[in-house]
Design a binder for these strands. Structure first.
Length: 565
RNA sequence: GCGCCUGUAGCUCAGCAGGAUAGAGCAACGGCCUUCUAAGCCGUAGGUCCCGGGUUCGAAUCCCUGCAGGCGCGCCA
């Protein structure tokens, strides 16, 4: 039952306005005491040639409202509607009880593919906190799109090409040892890479050597290629530990090197369509005046391809391979111009699906003592942060619940969840200054708080031996705290939809916090266990629904919902 | 210089297809565990919604001008 639609239909005749229009006008009053829905009558003043307050009174007296409207009240220029609380609570809880884990999901995607390019780490470089945003935003969107009936395709667009690999090979041949790299992983690679830069400042011939080494990779020289593959494999093995902790997966690891043989057709087509122009020896695509963008560089003056060339080729490949309905790029906003250019070039090439390419931009991550910089050694490894968070969680658990079974697993779920949750708690465009104390705060609007509330629900349901089949008397949970929980449950599907449409996982994060807060208020205000049978049953049903939706929300965000903690 | 983004409580952020007294959390202070998980709950205090114009019955929200900060602007990715 949709309350809004029915209220709007009831008003339509008296207001002489289409129901759909009235439905869009209906809003939620700022305070529940003012009603559940409100119609502001100001806009009707012109067409009805009356004062808003008079309109509200007239609509009230002339309309016949559905039975679930217990009261309609004109207040100022508003007409407020009060829904029968037992009906409202029942309508809110029934779908959750009936659908369980699929409550909030839908089939609107109809199986269409949505490519999501996220995380996209660089080979032989550290996986640091700067990569956390892309990784967890992308992963959450992956879950959300699947939940709404799409077929998400997770793509880790690896940074596995470029002259830096020539440098690394030279550095390794001069100063590296197989054993050190094997044991030290990316940190050891960074060390010899840094040494290369130091020594190359004195001896420029090293740079020539590096260029030659990279050329050797390109030409398929077996020795160079073997080293390159080795660096790649070692890095992937190392980052896999972090992905395992985060529970993040990918369907494709096709990175930059994958597109090496796929760029020529793009260049050919650009030439053929007369889009390519020579400028200072480089080949560029110029944009129409109204685009107000600098040209997009396609080929360097030495004929080498560039970042944009590769991304255009990648977009073509993904369209052909997956026939996506949308293709998302979860990449920091620094690359705003780059993606505007790439998308526009594809549009100029006559591909209507260019409109389905979306840059899901997010803010910069920095540390208080300066921006992240691999060179300056200020880099904070993601794995270190995750481990620290897990350790802190374990310490808290040792204090609060030392006998809990499965401590290791729970400490991992809570410690990791805290970081994921905090990364997903603000609009993605906001910059983040990484702060250990804030990242490891487990109180207030945090992941552990929501997980704790979930565990609290589980504990109640287990103690009461809750029977989902027991009949529920909804008239027993019409107190303000219960109704507030019900109101949020009712709003969950819309929150998921909004998160998907806006590519904003934080909408779900906030929703889960709100629900957890509402449940905790309910919990503190009302006893559940040991109440009369029918009261206990009704409150347990509410608890079961809250637990279910908190768990679903957390799962969508990529966060575990342990039953005990 | 040009373009994009951000500016709301001491701090971190919601609210911004205009609506009724601007909301949370953290930090501070004061309460609540001999009954359901205190990683919790309640209360107190804290705001020129960056400034100035405009549109509107009504602006934190829309438009314009400024200011401050971030990012970007050809052969890196």
């Amino acid at each position: 039952m949709d309350f809004r639609t029915e209220i709007a239909a009831a008003l339509s005749a008296s207001a002489k306005t289409p129901a759909a229009e009235l439905c869009a006008m209906l809003e939620t009053p700022p305070n529940p005491e003012m009603g559940d829905y409100a119609l502001p009558c100001f806009k009707l003043a012109k067409s009805m040639k009356k004062a808003p307050s008079a309109i509200a009174a007239q609509l009230k007296s002339e309309s016949v409202f559905p039975g679930f409207v217990s009261r309609a009240e004109a207040a100022g220029g508003y007409l407020n509607f009060f829904i029968d609380r037992a009906v409202f609570v029942r309508e809110a809880l029934l779908p959750v009880l009936a659908l369980g884990a699929s409550f909030g999901s839908s089939n609107e995607g109809n199986g269409r593919a949505v490519c999501i390019d996220y995380s996209s780490i660089n080979i032989a470089k550290p996986f640091h906190i700067g990569h956390l945003s892309s990784t967890v935003i992308g992963h959450a969107l992956y879950n959300i799109f699947n939940f709404l009936g799409y077929k998400a395709v997770g793509i880790n667009h690896l940074g596995d090409w470029g002259t830096q690999f020539g440098k690394l090979i030279v550095a390794f041949r001069r100063w590296g040892s197989k054993e050190e790299i094997e044991n030290g992983g990316v940190r050891a690679m960074l060390e010899i890479y840094a040494r290369f830069h130091d020594e190359a400042e004195q001896d420029d011939s090293l740079n020539d050597e590096a260029r030659a080494a990279f050329k050797a990779i390109e030409d398929g020289d077996p020795d160079a290629l073997a080293l390159f593959d080795w660096f790649r494999a070692l890095t992937l093995k190392e980052v896999q530990r972090v992905y395992d902790l985060l529970g993040v997966t990918f369907d494709s690891y096709a990175g930059e090197s994958f597109y090496n043989d796929k760029m020529q057709p793009v260049v050919d087509e650009l030439l053929e369509k007369g889009l390519l122009e020579l400028d200072d020896g480089a080949s560029v695509v110029r944009f129409p005046e109204e685009d107000n963008m600098p040209p997009c560089l396609i080929l360097r003056s030495d004929g080498a391809t560039l970042y944009a060339t590769r991304d255009i080729a990648a977009a073509f490949y993904r369209k052909a391979a997956y026939d996506f309905a949308k293709s998302l790029y979860v990449v920091a906003y620094q690359q705003n111009l780059h993606f505007r250019q790439v998308f526009r070039v594809i549009e100029l090439m006559g591909r209507p699906w260019a409109k389905d390419l979306v840059h899901v931009a997010f803010g910069m991550v920095s540390t208080a003592d300066g921006t992240l910089s691999t060179r300056k050694g200020k880099v904070v490894f993601l794995e270190d942060v995750l481990k620290e968070s897990i350790e802190k969680t374990r310490a808290i658990m040792m204090e609060k619940s030392p006998d809990l079974a499965g401590m290791d697993r729970i400490a991992k779920e809570v410690g990791v969840g805290a970081l994921v949750f905090s990364t997903l708690s603000a609009a993605r465009i906001k910059d983040i200054v990484f702060d250990w104390d804030r990242a490891l705060n487990f109180e207030g609007e945090t992941g552990p708080y929501c997980q704790y509330t979930h565990a609290r629900c589980c504990s109640l349901l287990a103690r009461a031996e809750y029977d989902p089949a027991a009949e529920v008397d909804y008239s027993l949970i019409t107190d303000p705290e219960s109704v507030e929980v019900a109101r949020l449950l009712h709003a969950f599907p819309a929150a998921v939809k909004a998160a998907c449409e806006k590519y904003e996982p934080f909408i779900i994060t906030r929703f889960v916090v709100d629900l957890a807060q509402a449940f905790n208020r309910f919990y503190l205000a009302h006893r559940i266990l040991g109440e009369p049978r029918n009261v206990q049953n009704a409150r347990l049903a509410l608890t079961a629904c809250a637990r279910r939706v908190i768990a679903t929300g957390l799962t969508l965000l990529g966060i575990a919902a342990p039953e005990k903690m």
